[in-house]
């Protein structure tokens, strides 16, 4: 089972995603803002990260960019708003493994994560 970082400033989304991932036996590390997510990606032994695009302190895309520039290569799934097409394109350019638009289905997110971890 994997250790997954869930970074989102919305407590409801963190909780829901955490519960779904825990039900599959994954361990979840939470971050409430960009800088905390950045530090967790560097310091925690993370297998995959789910990053919200709009977080206080640092955007998801900026966290991803910093990790990639530092050679941190674990898979990253970006959560973005419905109309944030620019963020989706940029995140894929920066090396995001996948993205999912809000509002979203936790079941779909879980399926995508399962596929990424299997790869």
């Amino acid at each position: 089972m994997a250790r997954i970082l869930v970074a989102d400033d919305s407590a409801s989304i963190r909780l829901l995603v955490k519960r779904h991932l825990q039900s599959d036996g994954h361990e979840v590390v939470e971050a409430v803002d960009g800088p905390t997510a950045l530090a967790a990606g560097r310091d925690e032994d993370v297998d995959l990260a789910i990053l919200d695009q709009l977080m206080p302190g640092l955007k998801g895309i900026d966290v991803l960019q910093t990790w990639r520039s530092e050679g941190i290569e674990f898979p990253v799934v970006l959560l973005s708003g419905v109309d944030d097409h620019h963020a989706v394109v940029s995140s894929l350019d920066e090396g995001a493994s996948d993205y999912i638009r809000k509002p979203f289905s936790p079941e779909e997110l879980k399926a995508r994560i399962t596929r990424l971890l299997a790869e």
């Binding site: 919305s10 409801s12 829901l16 809000k102 979203f104 289905s105 936790p106 779909e108």
Partner: peptide
């Protein structure tokens, strides 16, 4: 408010 928060974030069976 908590219900609204979840409802606007989710689709599918959870919604």
């Amino acid at each position: 408010d908590a219900l609204v928060n979840y409802r606007l974030s989710l689709v599918g069976s959870e919604r």
